[in-house]
Structure formats: C-alpha cells, structure tokens
Design a protein around this nucleic acid. Sequence first.
DNA 1: CGACCATTTGATATGGATCAAGCGATGTGG
DNA 2: CCACATCGCTTGATCCATATCAAATGGTCG
Lengths: 229, 229
Amino acid sequence: MLSQPINHISFNQPMNHTDAAQLYSLGQHLPEAGELMGASIIFRRNAEIYGEGEPADYLYKMLSGTAMTYKILSDGRRQVGGFHLPGDIFGLEAGDAHSLSAEAVSRCNVLVVKRSALVAMAGRQQEIALEVLQVMGHELRRVQTHTLLLIRSAQERVAAFLLEMAERNSTGDVIEVPMSRQDIADYLGLTVETVSRTLTQLEILGAIELSSRRRIALRNRSMLHRLNC
Amino acid sequence: MLSQPINHISFNQPMNHTDAAQLYSLGQHLPEAGELMGASIIFRRNAEIYGEGEPADYLYKMLSGTAMTYKILSDGRRQVGGFHLPGDIFGLEAGDAHSLSAEAVSRCNVLVVKRSALVAMAGRQQEIALEVLQVMGHELRRVQTHTLLLIRSAQERVAAFLLEMAERNSTGDVIEVPMSRQDIADYLGLTVETVSRTLTQLEILGAIELSSRRRIALRNRSMLHRLNC
DNA sequence: CGACCATTTGATATGGATCAAGCGATGTGG
DNA sequence: CCACATCGCTTGATCCATATCAAATGGTCG
C-alpha cells in the first residue's frame, strides 16, 4: 500500500491507462497519513477532512461512508453544501483554497488524490481533462438544484431530500440516513424542529415510515413527488 | 465578419495563439445569426439567449449589457440563478442540454462560441483546458455563495446583492441596476414587495440612496457590510 | 442504572408572503 | 402637447409558515 497506480482514479468508469510511475503522495496535514504514500484514508465519524481556507492540494473520492461539506457563517449558523456518498468526488475547487469545510458524517474511506498530479495528467491526456470537467459540471448542477430547493416550502424541501437520498442510495424503498437531523436541517436551511415536525407529518400522511432514527422507509413515492413539485 | 480567429476568445486575458482556420459557426437557432459565421450577437432586452433543455452547443461571453439565467418552477415561480455582466462567461453546462434559460436583461452584445470547437481546442492545448476549468470553478463558487445568500434575512440578502453589484460594476459608489425589482426578488428568493420595502428601509437607515429606479448610490458601505455578515 | 445527547412535541413570536390599493414614470393616440 | 392607459414600483394591512423558546421523551453508552 505504498503506491497506487494511476488507474485507481475512476471517475465514472475506471480508466484504462496505466501510469504506474505516477504516485499520489499524501501531505502530512492529512490525518493518519504519516509518511505513507498511500491514497486511501479512513476518517472517523465527525473527523475533519479539510477546513475552509486550507490549500486545496488534494481532491477526494468517497469509497465508503458519507461526508458533508459545510460553511459556518459569522453568526454561528451552519450551511451544509452537500452530502457525499460512495462514488462522489469532492474537494475540487476553483482557486487554491477550499471554500467549504468537509467532515465525515459516518466513518468513511476516502481516496485522496494530489491535485497537481491530476492537473499534470489532465494536461497530457485529454480524456482526463474532460472527465474533470464533467465532474465539475456535475457538481455545478447539483449545487444549482440545491439552490432551487432553498426557495421551497419546508415540506417540499424535506420530500426532495428524501427522494434525493433514495435515488443516490438506491437500496429499494428504505433509506439509510447517516446524518443527524441537525445536519439535514442545515442542508435544507431549516431548523431541527421543523425537520422533525415535517418528518412526522409525512409519516402521518402515509408517505414515509420512520423505522428508526437513521432509517426511513418510503411508503408512497408519488406523494413525495407531488410534494416535491 | 465571416470568420473569427481563435484569439478572440479571451477568458481572463486575451490568448495569444492564433488559429485562424478555426471558425465558430453559428447555429440557426440563434436569433439574428442567419447563415453568418460571425461570433458576436446583439440581443434585445428580454430576448431569450437560450432555453432550458435546449442543446448546450454554444457558450457565451458577455461583451456589453446584462443577462440573467433562470428557471421556472412547476408552480410558476421563477428562480434567477445569476446575472451576467461584461466579461462573464455563461452557458457552460455539465451535460448536453442547458439546465437553465438565459435572457437579456438589457440590450446586450454577446460573443458566441461553439462548444465543440472549444472542447477540441482544449484537447490540444492544456492552457485552454485549464482556463475552462477555471471558468467553471469560478461559476461553482458563485453559485455556492448564492446558496449561502438564500438562508439569510431579507435585509442581508438585499445588502449582499447591492455589494455584489457594486463590486462587479465598480463605478464608484453608484450602481447601475439594469434588472427590474422582480428580477432582483427572484434572484434573492424574496417577493417584489419585500425587496422594495427593504430598499426604502436601507435608504431610511442612510445606507443607500435611491437616485432613480435603476440607479442606487451606496452611502455607507460599512453598514451594508455589517448587515451582510 | 443513570447521565447525556438527539429527537420529538408543544406554545408562542415574528419575518416575510399575500392581498390590496395608491403612486409615478413612460409611452400612445388623439 | 396633453389626456389617458399601462406597467413597474411603493406602501399599507393582514395572515401564515417557520423560527424560537421550552419541555418531555427516548435511545445510547459509560
């Protein structure tokens, strides 16, 4: 586990160009990295993956678990920018510094890639540059959709959140919700109380079933879609 | 005006690689384009530049005037994604279709670039690929900042809007506001009434002066910054 | 078992939406 | 050039969704 051949960076599909000489060296600011040149890191629940303002020298691909990006406003409120599930790439920024912080929502395994290495590769191989563009475009669309969420009613926001999670988890009708109600609230621009109330209200309506704190079953998707419109 | 050498696409600074063989042919779906191979187009006020769902075959650089991107929700509400001032590039999308519509807020002159041409160039020249990435990253950050706006109070949103416009216009303390109150409201996720009320309130506080409908003078920037935090 | 923290539930307050009307600028036809 | 229509903007009155404050409940972990 001292080196990681290039083809371990798979964005959508695994890439087929092997470039074993290219290593991803890990900076010592990364927890548990030490002197290792490995690329896969475990973060404990609540561990900071990177902080706002830190140099954006790395980007991250979620292998297992869930992370979130967020920003703390001057008045103490927190806005969650997004949740990152297995397969997602995050930490790709415009400038040289992260504009959001990232934190592990649950224990997670993250592939860490040095940005400069990726940029160098992108310079040599067109497909990689295009894939990076695609990842960024995808992220842009996600954030735009999130923007649209924030102008809707509480019920619409919660319904949209549930459907989004269902679509991304896609384990049938039961959603695993690793994040706390507070995390959800900060993602949706609501208070915990409103999220909680809305969930029970959706349960009363028969749209969902709150199996346990971190598990929600969708009972009536079309109703959720109707609320979501 | 039948052809346009490559170095007319300047993102941040003009690029110095001439590639006169490369033309930007304009699709006939673009107004006033006709059979021309030219790249600079005038749009009248309220003219549609592109529509949501249309193929994103072109991207656009604002030369003069102001445009906005927006989306109509199923309930009829409109969310404005952003305003585009001279120098801005817009229309760069993740997939093959536009996820928002774009419309001229004032009469504007727009440079139109065929996406496939740009992608081809990006494949050949690393600097161009990097510039495209930078443009996208910039846009991503802008949208993220917009997201943060939408969870704030009305006063904070309006103050932030004024400061944003001042920063981008940078003609001293007087802002030209080409967009209607309704456009501003839809950008900030408020109603026209609230925008109007908040502006007069800011005037009473001495933070601004409503010189005319489309012209606002900043009288006390630090007050606006304080409201903005 | 007991302490703690997340979540839910309840009561009340409030910021912004909604409904409604007035006002002022701009444009048009006589 | 003026009367008038129109549209965008402002101002006023009221309502409602969500925030806020407060307390009860329940799950988790030592």
